[in-house]
Structures are given as structure tokens and as C-alpha cells.
Design a protein around this nucleic acid. Structure first.
Lengths: 199, 199, 199, 199
DNA sequence: GATGAATGAGTATTCATTCAT
DNA sequence: GATGAATGAATACTCATTCAT
């Protein structure tokens, strides 16, 4: 009998399957968007379709798990940068890494995650808190304008990838150009009052 | 006898259907993306499924028509702003209107239009030319940094809407906040050299 | 007020439409089989789709009308040959002409006609009677075996076309070869008793 | 580990489904022609529509499989008869069996098979060769006229079924009558020179 | 009467999800 | 636990037939 809520440790093969499944799903979702087919993911992971559903009751849950990975990754990154000497550079580096890793994967999780998955909600909170801290330090250092919030950074973080996705044969780091522009928009120099309060 | 190439005017009912179809398609594509189903669009337009295909032989053609509408709209807008007194304000107004009208509709047409539809390709060229002109005038007026191109503006134009689409119950003009930030990033003040050339 | 059952004479344009419709339908059905589309037939006839349905309430009725034409044609032919000097040659000529005119059009009317259309049923009866007469004269002349019926001839009449329809790029009169073989099967020489009575 | 090219044996349920699917498809195609609907076939087989497509990626592939079955069947039959004592009787028996098994299924495969399916093309070649051999032996034995080819037999083989298909409530072996007539046409007695060379 | 626009039932095919092996 | 077979709802698209102009 299992303790209430305890997660039984996976058998070795199950663990292996789960991680190649997640890796395959991450790649497929990045390449094909959320319409990637479960069959393709399973094939890419080298496992059967049924196994996918043993690990995740729903395709949406699988997507949530991939997203959770990303979020925990980013939260760790933000934590690592929390005490950097140059707070402005730290924020820029965070956004740079975030855009670089996020690749095509969008932010849908910001919308849906809360309902779907408790653990995801927790990770999201940690990430948000860490980003807010980065932003506040950068503001204190005068590197970033005072009227923006952590949420603004979160939202703008993936814009470079999205923007670039419309360029037919975009060079792989074109997104850096748009991150540059957007980050310049976050600087205090030349900042005009914003027409709408932060969400 | 019809003039060469002239399109016979639609019958009254056909014209009504066509326009409610286009309106419904615009809304559905905006809300659901290009995977919106023809059946839903037809239902929303209050017409039969078959009627959709009488007007547009293919779902893709329907999407192209919606996009064509948007593009011609924007091209007209850009043309109207071409000689405004304040070139910087003109560019900002263009992006503001563009974001406001575009709503969720994305830029996929930048990718696919050329192949699908000659008329669309033409409209796109006109729009691009007009935007480039707006940008160059704004640069000449010193309102916009010198290292950005018309293409940058085109790509960034829809970012505010995209960004906002991840906020659950976003107020309807929240996008203005992000347009403000991005436009500040296009100003000369505080501009850092961009890490990648324009596409 | 019209007399009971009288068919009012068609207006000149209606008559013209009707006949080009029948001609177009005959060609389309011959080329594409009974799945030829009403739209194609209308286009080929140079009339509107609606007009097709004004003349024939149903696609099936249109097919029946085409078939009726053929049947009346064949009945006239059979009548013309009824008194030929060489009764055997007359039967062969009938089958030859029948196959030549029938082209791809099959015998479905034998199955369905009765229910659909009274006039067609009448024409069919006349045709059958005439064929039976041809056969009986040929038998009396010793040119055709005694154990076959008019119905046999009717059924076998279109076999050559059908058989040839499976040859990819068949020369246009290849069917004559198979008519030759089948007709030889109808001759008294070498005839073996048939394993099943005529229908 | 599987041998190269070996087809893994189907699971028990899959094999059952596959064979009821093939049986249902054979009947439906025979009754309704190649336009029989996949949904009807599935219903008749007592399986889901999706299962049809798991077994055959395309309706056309399903048809090809049905046809392949028939062809291999016939090829085996022809091979079995290759050394019969009475060569004329052997040919007749072959045509009799062929017509009996073929039921309504037509010869479309003669046209399309080559493109679709390599295995089918091979089976067809074997069948053709075997039939040609039967014909030549029958000719050598003086049972069949000299001016006909194997292709003639192939083409005429299904004519009896086709012919009978126009008789409303035909007794189930009426086709034998027409095979009798046609086969008498293939005999040397009473043979007239044929008006067109064999295809 | 003629036209062609509108309709919706019907078609092949895909795919997330369930379940027997 | 893992597998892949089975399922059926959903999708884009066609076409005979009806109906407003």
C-alpha cells in the first residue's frame, strides 16, 4: 500500500522511457507546434503509442510536462543569475538564454497550466518570483526602466522567437536581433510613459 | 459582354454571404488560428458548408482572402500616412492601427502568400514598400534608429497582440503597452548595436 | 387548360436546350459512365444546372432519357432489318451497329427502366420484339443455332464494348473482334448444348 | 529479430479483422463496383472505419488487395490445370471456375494494377503466362481455334458475369449459359476470320 | 423559363484515446 | 508494464437537388 500522494519510483525501464518520451516530445512540439501527433512522438521516442498514454493520460498532459521541464530549467537559470554582479547584464542574459532554449515552444502554459497541473503551477510561481527579482535588481541598478514589471519580461521573453518564425529561412540566431530591439525598449533611455498598466 | 478580366458583380445574396463568410472567417481564424474548421466558420457565418466552397475552392484560399483583406487595409493605411507631418508619429500610428486591426491574426501570409495567390503577392509588395517608406522617413526625421529596416517593423508589428494572447483575461487594449515598449526599442535613444543583420 | 396526358409543345429555346442537353449527356455518360456529374453535363450543353433539372427531375431520369434515345434508335434499326434478304447477315449487322452505337453506354436500363419510365418500357418492348423476330428469322435460315433466344442476343450485344473497355489504349474498333467471336458462338456449327435455359 | 523483408505474423485479432475486411470488401466491390464506400465495407465487416485504414492505407490499396487475392487464386488454378489430359476441357474448366469465382468483380485491375502495386503486377504476369499456356495447349489439341490469343481469353473470361448482371433476378448460375456460347465461339468449328487482330 | 447560388448528406482520411494481447 | 490494434469523432471537400433572382 502506497502512502497517500507518494509517487512510487519508476522501474528502470519506465524511467528510461519517460525521459526519452519527454525529449522526443520536446523536439516534436518545438518543430511542429502543439499539433505534433502522438504517434510521431512515440516513434521518435522509440516506444509504443500506448506507453505514451501510460505516462501521460492526455496529450495535453504531455505538453504540460514538457513545459514544466522548460519552466524548471528557466527557474534554475534565473536563480543562478540572481546575485550576478551586473544586474542589467543578468536580466539580458536571462532573456537571451530563455529565448535560445525556448525555441519554438510558446507560452501557452501561462494560460492553461494552473488548471491542469499543480506542480506546474508551483514551478511557474518560482519562475515568476525569480524573474521579478531579476527585474527589480536591474531596475535598482538603473539598467532597466522603472515602469515595467516582471510579467512584462515574461511576456516579452518569447516574442523574438515568435517574430522570427515568420521569416522563411531564418538564420538560426536571427532572434537575437529582435531581443536586442526589445531589450533596448526596456532601457530607461528614451522611455515614454506606457499607455496601459502592467497586467 | 464582359470586359476582359472583369469580375461580374455578385448577386445580392451571394455578396451578402460572401461578406458574412469573410467576417466569420476572420474572427474564427483570429481566435482559433489557421486550424479553425470550415464547418465552424460556415456555422458562424450562418451559411451552409457547401457555400463556403462555392466562394473559395479551398480552405487555404479562404484564409488567403481574409489575409488579403487585412493586407490591403494596411497598405491603404500606410499610404495614407506616407506624407504626415510628423514622420515618427506616423510610423507609431501605423503600428498602432496595424496591431489594433490585426487582432490575433498572425503573419503566416508572409510565408505562404507568394505561392498561393498572385493578387496577394502584389498587395504584400505594396504594403512592404509603403512600410519601408514610413520607416525611412521616420529615420530621416531622427525619430527612429538608423539600424532597423522596414522588415523589422513588419515583423514586430504583430508581436504586441501575440504577447498579449497569453494573458488570460487581458483588457482589450493591453497590447498598447507592449507596442509602447517595442516602439521605444526602435528609438535612437539608448540603442545598442544589434547582434544580427536584418533579414 | 391542357388535355389529360398531352405534352405541351416546348418553346423553341426549350426544345433547343433539351436536345443539346441530351446530346451532352449522351457523350458524358459514354465517356465517364453513370457517375458523370450533372454540372459537367450542363456545362457541356452550354446551359445552366437548374435547366437540367427543369427538363429531368432527376439525374436518373436524364440517364433514362438518353437510354430511351438509344433504344428507340436500335428499335428502328431492327425494324429496318426485319425483312433483309439474308437473315443471318441481318442479325450480325444489327449486333454490329448496336455495339458501334452503344459505345460505352451499358445496359443498366434493362434492369431499372421498367420502374422509372413508362415510355421507356414501351420502347424496350418494341426493341425486344424486333430483336426476337430477327433471331427467329436467322434461326429459320439456319444461320444461328436453335437454342438461343432474343434475350440472349440482347444481353450479348453489349459484351464486346464492355470487354474492350479493359484494354488500356484500345483501337477504336477492337470490339469488332469480340463481336466476331461471340457471333461465331451463336452459329450452329460446333454448338454444344447450353448448360442453362435462357432467362 | 525479424528476417529481412519478412512480414511479422498478424496478431490473432488483427488477422481475423483483416480477413473479414477482405471478405466484406470483395462482396461490396462486387456488388457496388469500385465506388463502394469504405464506411459500408467497414460496417459489413463489423469493424470500425479506422481499422480499414490501419490495414490498407488507401481505399485503392484495399481494392488492389482484393484483386490480388483473386488473381493469385486464378493463377494457382491455371497452374493446376496446366498439365491436364484434355487441354480443351482444361481451358473450359478454367474459364468456368474463373467466372464462378470472379462473380461481379470486374477486370479494372488489368488497367491499373501495374502502377499501384508491384506484387500485383507480378501475380498478373504469372496469371497471364499460365492462361496463354492453357490456350496454346488447347489450340495444339485442336480444341480451340488458332486465331485467338491468351489475352482474348482473359478479356472474355468475365463477360458472362457482366452480361448476367443485367438480368433482374438471375438464377445464380445463369452465367454458365453465356460462357457456353462464348466458348463455342472459341471453337474451330464454324470459325470465321476475325475482323481485328488481338490486342 | 433560365440561371447559378445555397444546401447538406456523403466520402476518404487522420488522430487522440482505449483496450486486448 | 509495453505494445500496437481498434475505434469513432472530426475534417476538407463533392455533388445531386432546391430555390431566390
Amino acid at each position: 500500500m502506497m502512502r497517500e500522494g507518494a509517487e512510487r519510483p519508476l522501474r528502470a525501464d519506465a524511467a528510461r522511457n519517460r525521459s526519452s518520451l519527454l525529449a522526443a516530445a520536446a523536439r516534436e512540439f518545438a518543430e511542429r507546434g502543439p499539433d505534433a501527433s502522438v504517434a510521431d512522438i512515440a516513434r521518435r521516442a522509440g516506444i509504443g503509442k500506448g506507453t505514451v498514454f501510460r505516462h501521460f493520460p492526455t496529450k495535453e498532459d504531455l505538453l504540460a510536462a514538457v513545459v514544466l521541464d522548460r519552466i524548471e530549467d528557466l527557474a534554475a537559470l534565473a536563480a543562478r543569475l540572481a546575485n550576478a554582479d551586473d544586474a542589467g547584464a543578468a536580466l539580458l542574459e536571462f532573456m537571451d538564454e530563455a529565448a535560445g532554449r525556448q525555441q519554438q515552444l510558446d507560452l501557452s502554459f501561462l494560460r492553461e497550466s494552473g488548471e491542469v497541473n499543480e506542480r506546474l503551477a508551483g514551478a511557474r510561481e518560482r519562475l515568476f518570483a525569480a524573474i521579478i527579482a531579476l527585474v527589480e535588481r536591474a531596475q535598482a541598478a538603473g539598467a532597466v526602466r522603472g515602469d515595467i514589471s516582471g510579467m512584462d519580461v515574461i511576456l516579452l521573453m518569447c516574442a523574438p522567437n515568435h517574430v522570427v518564425s515568420f521569416v522563411p529561412d531564418a538564420p538560426p540566431d536571427l532572434w537575437r536581433r529582435y531581443l536586442g530591439i526589445i531589450f533596448d525598449g526596456l532601457r530607461p533611455e528614451g522611455a515614454r510613459p506606457l499607455p496601459h498598466p502592467a497586467p
